[in-house]
């Protein structure tokens, strides 16, 4: 099992107004107070299920990784140094549990990355035909606010090859920085940057029909 991070940046992770971040709460957990554990589980389960679900893919079973997450929180609460918010610390544990589960999971139906990267001619000229002007940023924001459109974008993200999809989710959705993503995936920061760029290029290709005004 990968070690639990104790030296997280103080302000990393999605901010939320959580009861578990109130002063003294971690101490109640360290003291083994049952009511504090129950509050932690009830308050954080929906959020952690969502984090795990994003990493495992749509319609995945999140319960194993969720239970693993809480077991690791219970077992390692003594290691929580209080430098980051407690909610940030447990977010990282959930990400780690989801990644471990992902490594054991069978591969999904995914598209080869090479099919999704841009093509160039022998002189390095981009082979790209744009059929219509791009949409304004407001139009893109309006589009993605529609529930069915969010589902379509998520489905396209799920089609990315696993190594690329994971980096895209950790960096662009979970908002982890390059170094932390590298640490969690046990790869070099340079590899994170390369994979992120390729994942975004591939996502661009998958979303192109949508960006050109057609359905993907």
């Amino acid at each position: 099992m990968a070690p639990v991070a104790t030296n997280l940046p103080a302000e990393s992770g999605a901010a939320g107004d959580w009861k578990i971040d109130q002063p003294g709460f971690a101490q109640r957990l360290r003291a083994g107070e049952g009511a504090a554990f129950e509050l932690l589980v009830r308050e954080q389960t929906p959020r952690l299920m969502a984090v795990i679900g994003r990493l495992l893919g749509q319609d995945s079973d999140t319960s194993d990784a969720l239970q693993d997450t809480f077991m690791r929180i219970f077992q390692n609460i003594e290691q929580f140094a209080g430098e980051a918010r407690l909610s940030t610390w447990i977010h990282r544990i959930a990400v780690n549990s989801a990644l471990m589960k992902l490594r054991k999971q069978s591969r999904r139906d995914e598209v080869s990355i090479d099919q999704l990267l841009p093509a160039f001619d022998g002189h390095g000229k981009l082979r790209y035909e744009h059929l219509s002007p791009w949409k304004s940023p407001e139009t893109v924001t309006d589009l993605v606010l529609r529930r069915e459109m969010k589902q379509q974008v998520r489905r396209q993200i799920d089609r990315l090859p696993e190594n690329y999809r994971t980096v895209l989710i950790l960096r662009d959705i979970e908002e982890l920085d390059t170094e932390e993503t590298a640490r969690l995936l046990e790869i070099q920061p340079g590899a994170v940057k390369t994979r992120l760029h390729r994942a975004r290029l591939a996502l661009r290709a998958l979303l192109e029909p949508l960006l050109q005004g057609d359905e993907p």
Binding site: A14, R47, A50, V51, R54, P118, L126, Y128, H130, W134, K135, P137, V140, T141, L143, V144, L145, M149, K150, V153, R154, I157, L168, D172, I173, E174, R200, L201, L203, R204, L206, L207, E208, L210, L211
Partner: peptide, 18 residues
């Protein structure tokens, strides 16, 4: 190409509201 790349990144970021 760059504009559509930028838009795809924005859509990817916004498709999940944590």
């Amino acid at each position: 190409f760059m504009e559509t790349y930028r838009q795809a990144v924005a859509m990817g970021k916004k498709c999940h509201n944590c």
